[in-house]
């Protein structure tokens, strides 16, 4: 499974300060640590960055790729900042991911960028108005997004469908609906569509000591249904051990006594 390291997020105080001061060191340290821990992509979330978005993303992409030979997952709602990130990205380490588009018209330009820059893109199955009711609802939105991808020349293998993870503590039935959606999304295309989740949303609002337990068990169920990628904390050893163990049980990785060390 593809691990997208989530640590470099504007939500974290340390990251927010570093982005504000343009101090590369804290960001680079987090990138290197996540790379070593087995992340395949490093997410860089700068938020809306309304003032200096393009310049900030350009800077962030360059300083991160100075220290890690990995593709990045560019995370901003600012279209201009996204384009600046795509331009700055060194594709020698792999194609970047746009995080994200959805079925909301204001996010459509992200899909255009995916076509223009031949980038991978995460698509939240979220439309205008209310949140999706169930897996079927999510599949309907996914089909519209897939059609838009085709219109923009984005090949299906570059599209990661995200079922939109909602919090378990207030919308208990939505966890299972997201799992069903991951299974159903794959059937929308041959070869199967790729899927991704922002995992930790599932435990938002739950007590701190319960959150990792919810996250890990939820991830296990998602991988079992064929999840291709997850935005998670690769520095969380229990989380990574869960990923490795499920992959071994699923026969996707060969067992060896030291499989957790690899």
């Amino acid at each position: 499974m593809i691990v997208i390291g989530e640590k470099i997020s504007v939500i974290a105080k340390k990251v927010r300060e570093a982005l504000g001061k343009k101090d590369p060191k804290p960001l680079q340290e987090l990138a290197v640590a996540q790379d070593k821990a087995g992340a395949h992509f490093i997410d860089i979330s700068i938020g809306p960055a309304e003032e200096n978005g393009p310049e900030l993303m350009d800077w962030a992409v360059k300083v991160l790729q100075e220290v890690v030979e990995k593709p990045l997952c560019l995370d901003t709602t600012n279209i201009k900042a996204m384009e600046a990130g795509l331009k700055a990205h060194n594709n020698a380490w792999g194609v970047p991911i746009i995080n994200s588009t959805s079925n909301e018209p204001e996010r459509f330009p992200m899909m255009e960028l995916a076509g223009k820059y031949n980038a991978k893109i995460i698509a939240l199955t979220l439309g205008k108005g209310s949140i999706p009711a169930d897996a079927e609802d999510r599949c309907g939105i996914a089909a519209e997004i897939m059609a838009r991808a085709m219109e923009n020349g984005v090949p299906m293998e570059n599209l990661f469908l995200d079922p939109l993870i909602l919090q378990l503590c207030t919308m208990q039935d939505q966890g299972l609906q997201a799992i069903r959606a991951v299974k159903m999304f794959q059937q929308l295309n041959d070869p199967p569509m790729q899927t991704v989740v922002g995992l930790s949303n599932i435990s938002n609002g739950a007590p701190k000591h319960v959150r990792p337990i919810i996250n890990r068990n939820f991830l296990t169920m998602l991988i079992y249904e064929g999840l291709s990628a997850a935005i998670i904390d690769p520095l969380d050893k229990d989380m990574m051990d869960t990923v490795k163990t499920v992959e071994v049980i699923m026969g996707k990785k060969m067992y060896a006594h030291s499989y957790l060390d690899m």
Partner: peptide, 14 residues
């Protein structure tokens, strides 16, 4: 044994 083969390679790498 495939699993032991992998294990030995891991140990050597470590």
């Amino acid at each position: 044994d495939v699993n032991l083969a992998k294990q030995l390679n891991i140990l050597l790498t470590q």
